[in-house]
Design a binder for these strands. Sequence first.
RNA 1: GGCCCCGUCGUCUAGUCUGGCCUAGGACACAGGCUUUUCAAGCCUGGUACACGGGUUCGAAUCCCGUCGGGGCUGCCA
Length: 495
Amino acid sequence: MVATKAKSASVRVRFPPSPTGHFHVGGARTALFNWLYARQHGGKFILRIEDTDAERSDQKYEIELVEALKWLGLDWDEGVDWQLVNHEWQGSSRGEHGPYRQSERAPVYKRYLEKLLHDGKAYYCHCTKEDLEAERQAQLAEGMPPKYSGHCRNLTESPRGKKPELIRFKTPEARMEFKDLIRGTVSFDASLFGDLVIARSVESPLYNFAVVVDDYEMKITHVIRGEDHLPNTPKQILFARALGFPEPLYGHLPLILASDRSKLSKRFAEVSMLKYRDEGYLPEAMANFLAFLGWHPKDDREVFSLEELKGEFDLKRVQKAGAVFNQEKLDWLNAQHMRRLSIDELLNRLQPFLGEKGIAAPKSFVRKVIAAERERMKTLGDFLKLAGFFFELPDYDAALLVWKGNSMARIKEVLEKILARLEKSRASDFSREKLPGAVAELIKEYDRGAVLWPLRVALSGQSASPDPLAIAGVLGKEETLRRVTAAINKIGLAL
RNA sequence: GGCCCCGUCGUCUAGUCUGGCCUAGGACACAGGCUUUUCAAGCCUGGUACACGGGUUCGAAUCCCGUCGGGGCUGCCA
């Protein structure tokens, strides 16, 4: 712990995704925790791309991840970047420890691979895939855990007819342990590993090896990652020791689980983070939600902005057990965050969700619509579905206008009286505050439901809506009269 | 199978390190009620949890052991 404190002045953490699939919830949470840790320690946050698997890596996923990170508000100090310039993505990179894409770091890995080979800490293995598979099957058949036999460990030259297939690390047979920032002491038995494959050739390193080299070269102090990496950690520590590197501090985050408690990213949720953006979730709500998957403040507060999270987050309070992804909680948090926004800010965020009619409408009108509907929305994407009728009255059935126990003729009568009253009201009186006066007598004469229900349907064309008088206030005199008249005509036709 | 990690309401969790304030708190969801012109929202109320079994102790969700359960990893993927 003393070491943590001493190093805290120069904290350097990284988020190293591999662009082989969509940037999902799990990745986003890992990125967030790293970002939070860096920001609250005045450290650096580095984005490194782990694309040693050329087959599966795709630039489009790299761009997607950059987009999603920016959307969430997680900025980084070093690493690759992408910018949209004239509708085209342009790549760039910043920082002094690059390149930040593993596919561009071959010479670096080669240097260390050769060093290990030269020092006798690694060796060429001539076993073919078939040899290895046969060995593996034989061990399994005997009920033994599969482990490389060490067949090529002490070879001094290539066996006849064989060529070097891959590079192996001479794994020391030792019991080892390390202190995890979240789970305390974790121990492993390295003698169970066998000689690990660290590269296909000096030109082509494998994940575990490349990570160790990069973390060292990029001066990473804390490795904060998912629990699925826990078994990799002792291996990486072994490589670091062989290379004479200082070991970073490790912290393994609990996994995010699907509702059946299996690893989320393994299940349905290879769902892109951008999907949440496109459905109208607020990035601050998403960050808030992600943070609470495995972390919780000391008190009972639940709604946090990114900035507030930064002040409150504490790696020591991170949970050890996996956390199930709970969509309802996300929705609730999103609604909470939407309420924290001003009408103008909400209007900004709503831009992509306004629809043609909403975009064409005057801003002042849209603001009123937002004010009337904001507490009913769970996502920005709900806007059109909830408030679309303000812009264009949907078609509805005349029968919908009828309040329980009333005849259609009676409803027509009510609507006509409402129309008469409203016509006499001044346009400036069309507001939620002043309008009740206009219908007060009618309500006394008929009852609330018999008056307000038909008015609601006439104005919204639907059975669920905000207060009809509020709608009238937003719509204004002219449009309100037009809709009430249309309703009367509709009944006329039905009768 | 082997190795590793984990185990408080249906879910996210507070409490566990530093036993007593815990007849276990909050939130989401759920149920009921209030409000009410609808649907939400809001407010009030309610139910449901310390995996199990042994210890240690005056006292255990908290400490120890065992069992069971869940998950991760087990690749020339990352």
